[in-house]
């Protein structure tokens, strides 16, 4: 009993120590993580950050500059920009995270499958991926949105489909190089079946590059959501979205700059957080930088 407790404590200590190393070695990553946590907490606990509703119209209060009552000012319908800023993080995170999750899980599994099976199956899958990759991701997402129509789910789907071939390519090429690797050959010699090889040997070794890439793509997904909303194709109104708020207020920039500055700030925050995190993730997972 006592022993297992001690073990637990030791493990805790180890984790805390590791966290300390992370802070020391990855200052930018730490900054990204903090930013990300802020955005995350705004998204999860929005009512704690603001009491006002982001969709509450108040015509007497249109175009109020930032003040103690309206911290970030108010917009053309008298809605509180601070509240829209806070709730906008929800849209960004929900769409960004779920689309990348969807893209990476589906793309990852298909990539490993296609890379390991090889042959005709791989050929066909990869030609389809080529077709999808021939378009810039954002153009593909725009196309899908135009066909599906605007809704939160469709936005997630569109971004996921746009990024899915990229993740597929990555895991496929990793899987292929792993398939040819000596430790997989050793496993074959040891008698491992194809399934065991994919689950025990190939998949775990795909995780690091996959995770690094997915985190890096997260920033682009935030941006894609903003772009789609900016183009009027993202989540429908009145759901607050940084991208939409930014684009709709571009004409007001001269007279009410706060309407553009704060949504822009939100997008920048989320994208920076994801990119910094992605960078340090690569530093940590890249075996070449690993200390013996």
């Amino acid at each position: 009993m006592n022993k297992s407790l001690q073990k637990k404590e030791a493990r805790m200590k180890k984790h805390i120590q590791r966290l300390g190393f992370f802070f020391r070695d990855e200052p930018l990553g730490t900054f990204g993580a903090v930013l990300f946590l802020i955005v995350l907490s705004m998204a999860i606990a929005s009512p704690l950050w603001t009491e006002k509703s982001p969709t509450d119209v108040s015509i007497p209060n249109v175009f109020k500059p930032p003040s103690s009552e309206f911290w970030f000012g108010s917009d053309n319908l008298g809605r509180d920009v601070w509240s829209r800023f806070v709730y906008g993080s929800r849209t960004s995170l929900l769409v960004g995270l779920s689309s990348i999750l969807l893209a990476s899980v589906a793309g990852g599994i298909l990539g490993i499958f296609s890379g390991l099976i090889g042959g005709k199956t791989d050929l066909i899958i990869q030609r389809i991926m080529d077709a999808l990759l021939s378009m810039p991701a954002i153009v593909l997402a725009i196309l899908i949105m135009a066909v599906l129509g605007t809704s939160v789910l469709n936005t997630i789907l569109a971004i996921a489909v746009a990024y899915f071939p990229r993740i597929n390519r990555l895991t496929r090429s990793t899987a292929i190089s792993l398939r040819e690797s000596l430790f997989v050959e050793s496993a074959i010699v040891a008698g491992a079946s194809k399934i065991r090889i994919s689950i025990m040997h190939v998949a775990p070794n795909c995780i690091a590059p996959w995770l690094v890439y997915a985190t890096a793509l997260l920033g682009t997904a935030f941006l894609a959501e903003a772009t789609l909303s900016f183009l009027g194709l993202g989540v429908p109104p009145p759901i607050p979205s940084w991208g939409r708020d930014l684009s709709e207020n571009l004409t007001n920039f001269e007279f009410a700059p706060w309407l553009c500055i704060f949504p822009g700030l939100g997008i920048t925050m989320a994208v920076f957080a994801a990119n910094f995190l992605g960078d340090s993730m690569r530093n940590i997972f890249d075996p070449r930088l690993k200390k013996a």
């Binding site: 119209v57 053309n76 319908l77 009027g232 009145p238 709709e248």
Partner: peptide, 17 residues
């Protein structure tokens, strides 16, 4: 229509009222 903001603004106002 999505290309003219005032049409959407009006309906958002109505939605609120």
């Amino acid at each position: 229509r999505s290309d003219e903001a005032f049409r959407k603004n009006v309906m958002l106002y109505c939605a609120d009222v």
